[in-house]
Amino acid sequence: MTLSIATLKAMIHEYHGFILSDEELERIRPELESYLAEAERLRELDLANVMSARLLHVDEGGQS
């Protein structure tokens, strides 16, 4: 999966993003392609019932 320069420019315009020239868009392309590849891989997963949590607690297995 890839995104064309025209699409990226349209996204920037529509979402009031940071303006990038064609050359600059080429420079961020490796990062974007990596993102899109990972996003594609995530389609395999059913994430509907995954809860979110950040903090860790000692009763998760640690000792203090």
Binding site: L8, M11, I12, G17, F18, A39, V50, S52
Partner: peptide, 25 residues
């Protein structure tokens, strides 16, 4: 340029990433 790439991340994918973070944890 590494930072500016972040403006193209969709909210859907961000939410999925946080859920994957939970799975890995």
């Amino acid at each position: 340029y590494r930072t500016l790439a972040g403006q193209f991340v969709l909210g859907r994918d961000y939410s999925k990433a946080l859920k994957v973070q939970r799975l890995i944890k």
